[in-house]
Design a protein around this nucleic acid. Sequence first.
DNA 1: TTACCTGCAAAGAGTTTGCAGGTAG
DNA 2: CTACCTGCAAACTCTTTGCAGGTAA
Lengths: 142, 142
Amino acid sequence: MEHLKFNIEKLRASGLRPTRQRLAICKILFNRKETFHFTIDQLKKIAEKNIKKKISLATLYNTVHAFEKKGYLKEISLKGNKTFFDTNTKNHHHFYDEETSQLADIKNENISISNLPKIPNGKKIKEIEITIKVANNNQKQN
Amino acid sequence: MEHLKFNIEKLRASGLRPTRQRLAICKILFNRKETFHFTIDQLKKIAEKNIKKKISLATLYNTVHAFEKKGYLKEISLKGNKTFFDTNTKNHHHFYDEETSQLADIKNENISISNLPKIPNGKKIKEIEITIKVANNNQKQN
DNA sequence: TTACCTGCAAAGAGTTTGCAGGTAG
DNA sequence: CTACCTGCAAACTCTTTGCAGGTAA
């Protein structure tokens, strides 16, 4: 596993010791080709499948928040009370299927905004977040 | 108060009897020129200032959800675990100041998207939501 | 050995629900 | 009078925190 060293570096850079639990979390989050979108709950379920001994909630929150602070994960704005995270921390936007709670990235280069409105007085733009909500094509319009 | 009849209609259309509590909520939500953005918590505080007898949380949630179902209020996608509502239910977008949790509407006509990406297979667009996060201009860049 | 980490369980925050007494129609 | 509404408190969900025993370095 050549990712091992990579993940250990990531943990150390986040001020975390590379424990068995954290390495398992890293593997789930970062050793994949595609961007990964998840809630803590989903991450917990995947972790429970992948390893024998369980990982506690406290450890999951602890590790995810450390990665978020370090800029390795990003929180996504969505309705509802669950927090979604994204392993893609670059500026980009999302497709979101509310029925399945599935998120998919839109690459930033593929989309742009015209007629940007005037920013309120004394404020500057920090980030623009676009969410395109989608639904199945075959079901009746609401 | 000429809004009285208007609010009573709104309540009846939502399947709700026009009680004193609900009329007070309607007055806060709908009898204003500008769009109103709020959390249940904020609404509760305003209600407590405006009327003598308190309004219970249960009544606030009940009424707000009835209005949402009826299409008189709309939930907004944002980070964090508090639910934000908007009295503007038309398609539109927002400025959001995370420091103050203040939302402001962007009129839909003022903004548009170009180079819309391909929609995933079998899906159709339901809604596009743009959030422009702003910060104070005078503080140091993060 | 020391500082950090883990799992558990309790505590918090926001929201939902069940119910006894109260009110609109 | 009946059906619906209110306020309260309990319950629920998600997240955070405190702490005793365990582990990396």
